[in-house]
């Protein structure tokens, strides 16, 4: 007989979140892994197949600490290739929701809003593919009380930079290597290199 009071296993919790249902039918073929560009270009330890297995084997902590949980950009390259028709990013996002619930934080260097210049036009909110930017009311020192302003939800921001590319007042951008200035500099360097090559 089923015990109704038994706490849900990690897998059952993942399956209860829309998108996570099909995790249990993964037969570990690895198609998604060799399909994945994040695995190949960004992070070798990224592995959706292992994530499926961790969920099935109740390895909650390992799953929460795995880069796979935080780096999936939902590009959906793997989904049409999976022979078990598992919506893989759906499963990973379900794990991520549970991780956030448990207080885990994304290791990504996410976008930041310059509260001094943001005019709350909402363009960034519209374009963000991860629904990670919202307009909120806040007190801004030296600017005023209950100001409407953009705010980034760090746990859902995937640092794609789309927001900063549309912002008309340069008020939202990525940090470190990916600030507007750094991107423009490296683009300029690359172009110079190309023209040197062409003229040489």
């Amino acid at each position: 007989m089923e015990n109704k009071d038994k706490p849900l296993s990690f897998m059952e919790q993942v399956q209860a979140i829309p998108g996570g249902e099909a995790v249990s039918v993964c037969f570990s073929c690895g198609t998604c892994v060799s399909r994945c560009l994040i695995q190949q270009k960004v992070e070798k330890a990224y592995n959706p197949r292992r994530m499926m297995k961790m969920v099935m084997m109740d390895l909650r902590e390992s799953a929460f600490d795995s880069p796979t949980t935080w780096l999936c950009s939902s590009c959906e390259l793997c989904y049409p290739a999976c022979p078990q028709e598992i919506h893989i990013s759906g499963v990973i996002n379900a794990v991520k929701e549970l991780a956030i619930e448990k207080g885990k934080r994304s290791p990504l260097k996410t976008a930041e809003v310059n509260t001094k210049t943001c005019v709350a036009c909402g363009l960034c909110v519209e374009v963000c593919p991860y629904k990670a930017v919202h307009l909120v009311e806040k007190n801004i020192p030296n600017r005023g009380k209950n100001m409407t302003i953009a705010e980034v939800d760090n746990e859902h921001c995937m640092a794609c930079g789309l927001c900063s590319s549309v912002c008309r007042s340069n008020s939202i951008e990525l940090t470190e290597d990916c600030t507007d200035e750094n991107v423009i500099d490296s683009l300029r360097n690359w172009l110079t290199e190309q023209s040197v090559k062409v003229t040489a």
């Binding site: 073929c29 690895g30 198609t31 998604c32 892994v33 060799s34 399909r35 190949q40 292992r50 290739a81």
Partner: peptide
Amino acid sequence: QGRPSLITEDKKSHNLFVHSEDITLGLV
């Protein structure tokens, strides 16, 4: 052990590249 996700071809030699995870090694 691993299901290939892609085969690509060298246009000149018509040799083929099989892309797959080797899951026992955990390597692409």
